[in-house]
Simulated scan of single mutants.
Amino acid sequence: MSDLHFRVATIDDVPALVALVESAYRGDASRAGWTTEADLLGGRRTGADDIVACIQRERSVMLIGERDGALLACAHVAMERGSGNEAGAGYFGMFSVRPELQGDGIGKAVLREAERIVREDWQLPLIRMTVIDVRTELIGFYERRGYHRTGMHKPFPYGDERFGIPRRDDLRFEVLEKAFTRET
Rank of each mutant, 00 (worst) to 15 (best):
A32Y: 09
A32E: 06
W34V: 05
W34K: 11
W34R: 09
T35V: 02
T35Q: 00
T36D: 11
T36F: 00
T36Y: 08
E37M: 11
E37L: 15
A38W: 04
A38P: 01
A38T: 13
D39L: 12
D39Q: 10
D39W: 07
L40M: 07
L41S: 01
G43F: 12
R44M: 13
T46P: 08
T46Y: 01
T46H: 02
G47Y: 06
A48F: 06
D49K: 12
D50N: 12
I51G: 02
A53P: 02
C54H: 15
R57Y: 12
E58T: 13
R59I: 05
S60E: 09
S60Q: 10
V61K: 09
V61S: 02
V61H: 06
M62K: 00
L63A: 06
E66K: 03
A70S: 09
L72W: 04
A73D: 10
A73K: 02
A73I: 03
C74M: 07
A75G: 04
A75Y: 01
A75V: 05
H76N: 12
H76V: 04
V77Q: 08
A78C: 10
A78N: 01
E80R: 15
S83T: 14
N85M: 13
N85K: 13
N85E: 15
N85V: 13
E86P: 09
A87M: 13
G88H: 10
G88T: 05
G90H: 05
G90R: 09
F92R: 06
G93D: 05
M94K: 05
R98G: 01
R98W: 00
P99C: 00
P99L: 08
E100N: 10
E100K: 06
L101I: 11
L101D: 01
G103I: 01
G103H: 05
D104G: 14
G105M: 12
G105S: 13
G105F: 10
G105V: 08
I106E: 03
I106Y: 03
I106C: 03
G107K: 00
G107S: 07
G107W: 07
G107T: 03
K108H: 14
K108G: 14
K108C: 06
A109H: 11
V110D: 00
L111E: 00
L111N: 07
R112A: 15
R112G: 15
E113Q: 15
E113A: 14
A114S: 14
A114D: 03
E115A: 10
E115H: 02
R116A: 13
V118G: 00
R119T: 10
R119Q: 08
R119I: 13
R119S: 10
R119M: 11
R119E: 10
E120K: 08
E120G: 11
D121G: 05
W122A: 04
Q123L: 12
Q123S: 15
Q123D: 15
L124I: 07
P125E: 05
P125W: 04
L126Q: 15
L126P: 07
I127S: 08
R128S: 01
T130Y: 02
T130H: 10
I132V: 11
I132P: 06
D133W: 07
D133P: 00
D133T: 10
V134Q: 12
R135K: 07
R135M: 09
L138M: 09
I139A: 03
I139G: 01
I139M: 06
I139Y: 04
I139T: 03
G140L: 10
G140F: 11
E143P: 06
R144F: 02
R145N: 15
G146C: 09
G146A: 11
G146L: 00
